[in-house]
Amino acid sequence: MTIATDDALAAFATTATSAVAQCAGLDPRGRARCLAEAGLIGVLAAEASGGLALGLDHAVPVLHAAGAGLLGYPLLESMLLAAALGERPEAARIVLGDATATIAWSGGAQLEGGLLSGTAGRAPMADSADLVLVRLADGAALVDATGPGVIIDAGDGLDLEAAECRVILSGATPLALLDGDAMDAILQGARLLWAAAIGGAVETCLAAAVAHTSTRVQFGKALVSFQSLRHAMARQKLAAEHIGAAIARSLMHPDDRLARAAAFAAATRFGASAVESALQLHGGMGFTWDIPMHRHLRRIRAWDAQGDAPGLHRRLAADLLAANA
């Protein structure tokens, strides 16, 4: 993998920030078009499918902007799925924004006699998707979300921007199958990109906390002048930098699975507490529906579950024990 220049990455960040802002006023299909026109969905996808065939280092600033801007679109899923599908026709449809796609991160399906059955969960926005990837015991299967044998119903996750859905399969026909390595590559990529999105969310919440405490006056002084609050914000900054540091190192060592796992684990752990702290600094306002702190917090909790952070920690510990047997 070549390491991109800072200028090239900054250009991706700027484009993504502007596209994410535009998406706020659009429906899911409009968002797909908007993100596709900005060239974002195809960052990782093959050139033959209309993609840019770039590395994950270019996707990081895009997901950072998506997290910062509360994007309501399964962009992470679309980018990784389009890349995994290579030159299959579905890849081009996703890249161009003609089809919306998502991934059911939990549960999965069995493939018997060429037909899929089972229940998958944690599929962001599957209710408005054309294509859904569900996991198999070894690999994954792509299905038509509106096809026969596929029922999408509301999930019970916390995220409000890209609500999680359940995918119930009973005799659905797969459009495409991915092998175990391809699914693993999706998971590895997702861990890095969730970390990037959480990093973006933390920075947005920190900026809001700085703005709020700089203007809100209590005890005759701006809140920002109280050292305990300054230190709380310094810790939020520290969380954002931890996430950035772990991502940077993972990009330096793309094959180091521990480094990749650490980026995701660091993001869910430090990211969630940083947003909780930013919420706290908003006082009563932080507890309201209208102040978006809770939206960021909800998403981080959802991503934590989608990436199975608890299971990942168990596997890391098991690796540690095995290495010191």
Binding site: R249, A261, A262, P310, L312, H313, R314, L316, A317
Partner: peptide
């Protein structure tokens, strides 16, 4: 396990 894994992550950071 969780605490051991968090130490590993701390080191990676």
């Amino acid at each position: 396990h969780r605490r051991l894994a968090e130490i590993m992550v701390d080191i990676e950071i």
